[in-house]
């Protein structure tokens, strides 16, 4: 059993939890993920690690309530426990001194981006962070990311905070200004990563994206998380979750992530939770 040490409600549908798991906390690195299962009848879901505290032995997860499991997880309180918590899984981000790095986070994708920004900054990079969300309420970790970034740009779809528009517009602005960029990290909704990758491809800017496909075991066993990367099929759980954004087939990923949309709806309906 893994205890929920702390819980914060970041917005109506986004929650933060610090989970006690000393083994995972000890090994966790930016870019990796965990798999959790709430109870005996639960499914296994992957969540990217938002932070870790090696001394306290906790791992931070931030999740949006989108299906039955995340909704159920959201109802748990501090002091409650979840049954399974395995990790850290996947390959860590390849952090090095690149020069100027643009880190783009969209919605709940801002969460896994935070430790990556922090490590990139630590490695001596000039970090420009671009955070985007549908509206101000859904924006998270602004203060934390401000602290570890050299520049911070914020935008919202409705203009309730920062610039009105999309993260790709901000990136386009930076490129138009003639900013020299060495590499881009983009984590967020698939469509956001696709748009960013299409833009950077035109400018020949290497772009790393972090994928979150459907998984079961998370150890390379089931292949449910396979994605097309260039000419190859890769498993996000062991080969990723980060890949070269210019090679990922985002359309196939979008399709595969909707594989169980109907079943998910049915499960939520049966459990009396609204989607």
């Amino acid at each position: 059993m893994y205890k929920i040490i702390e819980k914060k409600v970041l917005s109506e549908s986004v929650k933060l939890m610090k989970i006690k798991s000393p083994l995972v906390a000890k090994k966790a690195l930016a870019g990796q993920f965990i798999i959790l299962r709430i109870d005996e009848k639960g499914e296994r879901i992957p969540l990217t690690i938002a932070d870790y505290d090696r001394e306290k032995g906790t791992v931070t997860i931030i999740f949006m309530e989108v299906g039955k499991t995340t909704k159920k997880l959201g109802t748990l309180k501090e002091g409650d426990s979840i049954l399974n918590f395995a990790g850290p899984l996947g390959k860590p981000s390849e952090i090095e001194k690149f020069g100027t790095v643009v880190c783009i986070g969209g919605g709940v994708g801002i969460a896994p981006l935070y430790p990556i920004i922090r490590e990139l900054k630590k490695a001596g990079n000039y970090v420009i962070s671009i955070l985007g969300a549908r509206n101000e309420k859904l924006l998270m970790l602004e203060k934390e990311i401000q602290e570890v970034s050299d520049e911070l740009h914020i935008c919202t779809d409705d203009g309730s905070k920062g610039k009105k528009g999309f993260v790709s517009d901000v990136l386009q602005g930076l490129i138009d200004d003639g900013k020299k960029i060495n590499i881009v990290w983009a984590i967020g909704p698939i469509i956001m990563m696709k748009v960013v990758a299409n833009l950077t491809k035109k400018h020949n800017l290497k772009t790393i994206v972090s994928l979150n496909p459907i998984m079961v075991d998370g150890t390379g066993m089931c292949g449910g998380c396979r994605v097309s990367v260039g000419d190859e099929t890769k498993f996000a759980c062991v080969d990723g979750p980060e890949f070269d954004g210019h090679l990922v087939d985002f359309d196939n990923l979008m399709l595969r992530n909707r594989r169980f949309a109907k079943e998910e709806e049915h499960a939520c309906h049966m459990a009396g939770v609204k989607l």
Binding site: K41, E43, T69, V216, D217, C222, G224, R256, E263, E264
Partner: peptide, 30 residues
Amino acid sequence: ENLDGVYSANEFLTRVNMMKAYDFPNYDTP
């Protein structure tokens, strides 16, 4: 092979056996 509807035997059997998808939605895995 990456179309929706193609499973590895491992994924299919793990869903059904270990995760008990045959008893969905009583169990959460579809």
